[in-house]
Design a protein around this nucleic acid. Structure first.
Length: 268
DNA sequence: CTGGGGACGGGGCCC
DNA sequence: TGGGCCCCGTCCCCA
């Protein structure tokens, strides 16, 4: 029954069963029609080029990650926004405690580091898989001309999507991405298609009205866990996102964006 | 204008 | 290798 709840998210997880079991067991589950999956869409490995590296920078709220979604015309400098340090033991930040929305704790003791490239993995399994990527990367090495292994461990890519410019360094990742083009999961109620079954399940809740995620503070229920997470921020006195100009905090990045662009420091 | 909810997309991780 | 799940994030809409 206990599922994998990384980083203590079970603290505010719904009291009901796991996400995959409620209300989906009846008709809605039959709404999933994942038979449309054209594997033939998978590309060959002939394509080879380096692509932009997706670093984990965005995960630690670095300001450099912010302008990606800023309005192009906005003169706001990224440096006007800074991640809020919630390290202070504020009781208001209780629901944020231990979640992965926080920067991952260094805790090197339980990290599994790759001897090849130094990348830290969260588990032995992850490390094993990562090391396999070195093996497969060796296979792909001629696809991705790269001589600096240590520096390029995160940059090599060999599998290119034929529908868009995206590239991936593993076939599995590419297959997953291609689903976003093929949308194999179709809602039988409204016909809307989704890339993954659980996306469809979430969508089906909009039809059924099911709200399995409830707030422990106000008992308000949500159909989407992410929305509950955002809601929990409203109960926190100190919000996660802070404007470095006026120190005002916001529950959402988007609100911070609006604030910096429109009212606080639009010309900064 | 601001804050918040609803709906959804996508990459990563674990089994 | 694939499915399921998690988290992060965005966009839109409304009060």
């Amino acid at each position: 029954m206990q599922q994998r709840f990384r980083d203590g998210v079970s603290k505010w997880f719904c009291p009901q069963q796991s996400t995959g079991s409620q209300a989906i067991q009846a008709d809605p589950i039959s709404a999933m029609v994942p038979e449309r999956y054209p594997l033939a869409e998978l590309p060959t490995k002939e394509d080879s080029s380096l692509v932009t590296t997706y670093t984990s920078a965005a995960l630690v709220w670095t300001t450099s990650a912010l302008p990606l979604s800023f309005h192009p015309s906005s003169p706001t400098t990224p440096s006007s926004i800074a991640p809020l340090d919630l390290s202070s033991p504020s009781s208001s930040g209780e629901e944020d405690e231990g979640r992965t929305s926080d920067p991952p704790s260094p805790d090197p003791s339980d990290r599994f580091q790759c001897a090849h490239c130094g990348i830290s993995c969260s588990s032995r399994a992850a490390l094993s898989r990562h090391q396999l990527s070195h093996c497969s990367a060796g296979t792909n090495a001629n696809l991705v001309e790269n001589s600096n292994m240590a520096d390029s461990a995160t940059t090599r890519a060999a599998f290119r999507c034929k529908h868009c410019p995206k590239e991936y360094n593993s076939l599995g990742a590419l297959k997953m991405h291609i689903r976003s083009h093929t949308l194999p999961c179709v809602c039988t109620t409204c016909g809307k298609a989704f890339s993954r079954p659980w996306l469809l399940r979430g969508h089906i809740r909009t039809h059924t009205g099911e709200r399995p995620f409830s707030c422990p503070h106000c008992n308000r229920a949500f159909a989407d866990r992410s929305n509950l997470r955002a809601h929990l921020q409203t109960h926190s006195e100190v919000k996660k996102y802070q404007c470095s100009t006026c120190s005002r905090t916001f529950s959402r990045m988007s609100l911070l964006h609006k604030h910096t662009v429109s009212s606080c420091c639009p010309s900064a």
